[in-house]
């Protein structure tokens, strides 16, 4: 049989639909890519898989029968990594479970399962870093605003954290890289997309009048809490890698 390339719409349900199709058509030689993938193999058989909620639901239901919520969560988070090729690892994970019809989701000596667990940890780390390093700026219209560009698509994972925490203030977290954001309007969180031409983060005209003062206070606090005789740059950089400095008020504000 020819090598088959399955193209899906980039959603988790889309990937699960691919798994359904792999079983339905008994495929053995295949690869899976999200839309926008430029393939060079002209002889391969390429097919666009239409996301089908009924099919994806059946795959997930069967998987849950053998495993646990924890396993599904681990796979979903690994999926959000958007690492090229993660789809195949996920499919192998599903197949391993379906083949043995028992919960092998902690079988770390099976390479795809260890791989998924490792990616899951990376995504978890990125999620935690966003929860830590996001710095809101208060705008004139009383919205706390921030832009992010995380390595992985963690916005769906951090929603609950920020909603629980900042229930009494309006906020927007905008993922520049993926061009969508979340807006909390004091009642619910809605997805939004923004045009940044007239909404630049560092435009002082849109900031609340006290905003810069509070940023400076924070910077003073940050500097004062350092103990110079214990300076440890290696450890500092290990905790706050340079690629995250752009988020941090204490690293970017000019006094």
């Amino acid at each position: 049989m020819h090598h088959k390339i399955l193209i899906y719409d980039g959603t988790f349900q889309g990937l699960l639909t691919c798994i359904f199709q792999i079983y339905e058509e008994k495929l053995s030689d295949y690869s899976i890519h999200p839309e926008g993938y430029n393939q060079t193999d002209f002889f391969a058989n390429k097919e666009l898989v239409i996301t089908d909620l009924e099919k994806s639901g059946r795959v997930l239901k069967r998987f849950k029968e053998y495993t646990s919520k924890k396993a599904v969560h681990r796979i979903y988070r690994a999926f959000l990594s958007e690492i090229p090729g993660v789809e195949i690892q996920i499919v192998e994970f599903f197949r391993h479970i379906f083949r043995h019809k028992t919960d092998l989701s902690d079988d770390f000596s099976y390479p795809p399962i260890l791989k998924i667990a490792q990616i899951d940890r990376k995504v978890g780390r990125e999620k935690h870093r966003m929860e830590a390093f996001i710095r809101f700026e208060l705008l004139k219209d009383d919205i706390f605003f921030t832009k992010i560009a995380p390595d992985f698509n963690v916005l769906p994972l951090i929603l609950k954290h920020f909603k629980n925490r900042y229930a009494d203030q309006k906020w927007i977290i905008y993922d520049e890289k993926r061009q969508f954001g979340l807006f909390y309007d004091l009642k619910k969180v809605v997805p939004i997309s923004l045009n940044f031409e007239n909404n630049s983060k560092k435009d002082p005209n849109i900031l609340h009048e006290d905003e810069i003062n509070f940023q400076k206070l924070w910077k003073s606090y940050f500097d004062s809490s350092n103990i110079k005789s214990r300076k440890n740059t290696k450890l500092h950089l290990q905790h706050v890698p340079k690629r995250y400095w752009k988020y941090l008020t204490e690293k970017t504000i000019i006094m």
Partner: peptide
């Protein structure tokens, strides 16, 4: 939830 270190001083301690 779990604790969060929002920043780190230059001596590597959590803030």
């Amino acid at each position: 939830g779990m604790g969060i270190c929002h920043s780190y001083t230059e001596d590597g301690r959590c803030v």
